[in-house]
Amino acid sequence: MTMTTADNQPLLKVVDLSLSYLTRQGPVPAVQSVSFELGRGQSLGLVGESGCGKTSVANCLMRLLPDNGRLTSGQVLLEGQDLLPMSEEEIRRFRWRRMAMVFQAAMNALDPVYRVGQQVVEAIEAHGIEETTAQARQRVARLFRMVGLDPQLMDRYPHEFSGGMRQRAVIAMALACDPAVIISDEPTTALDVIVQDRILRELKGVQRELSMGMIYITHDIGAVAEVTDRVGVMYAGRLVELGDTVDVLHAPMHPYTAALMSSFPSISGEKKALGTLPGEPPNLVNLPTGCPFHPRCAHATEECRREFPPQAQRGSQWAACWHPLNGAQESEQS
């Protein structure tokens, strides 16, 4: 679980990324100075409540922003190349070729009027990966087999697929152009737990096998534990904690991470009432001063209200907190 690759250059490096949405109430800072690195074959989780900016980060990486989205600062370096200053045509060639996405709602990520295989072929042909349509179709058949789908299904329409099959098809589609990085945005939320688990394992397997970098976005701590090497916790558009998954889950430093943890049941641990975190994530239009978490935090002091905290470091783990928890401490909010 090292952070960088052998040649010492991370596969994907995100530096000080900030994004605002222009709205009638003024600019809404959806993502604020987010930085992280992703190595080859490594998998990074991004967790947090709904509306904390996880999906916005994913969209920034793919440069798939709505018309009112404005990147205010930052760099997204994929294999050393900055994606943000690229022209529309350059980024179009880049998308899916080097960085692909497994969509949040696989149900709706397939166009209902085209055959599933055709939609994968379309991506392959748009990037000229194969010479002929016949070769492209052979490639789709291989991809289908890789994700556990019968290749004969490629000539079916999306409505003829079950939820799990569609999710597999969407994964196959993401792998179509052999990308270096794959972004999975809550890929299994619409599925039942059994299928969810199976698909997670397969996704993880494929990622290892092809040695891709993966960014896994979810609010499900269980999935994070299963598929990610490192995990970042987001709150109100900021990355508030980042570290190796094992460390973060066992000894969270940020009170918010601890609160998130305590609200998930553990099968192996002792039986206890699940914790709840009072309040709601803050309104991004009108963020609290200082640390955005302070109104909900039991440890908040005067300085938390005044100034955004610096990073507290512990090994390869850090948290943006004035009063980081030390390993043994559990959340006191329940």
Partner: peptide
């Protein structure tokens, strides 16, 4: 989502518009 997916796949703008959204 499939229109967003079409754009993410790196299809040219015209293809996204005509073959997915308009279709």
């Amino acid at each position: 989502d499939y229109v967003m997916a079409a754009r993410a796949k790196g299809l040219p703008e015209k293809v996204v518009r005509d073959r997915h959204a308009a279709r």
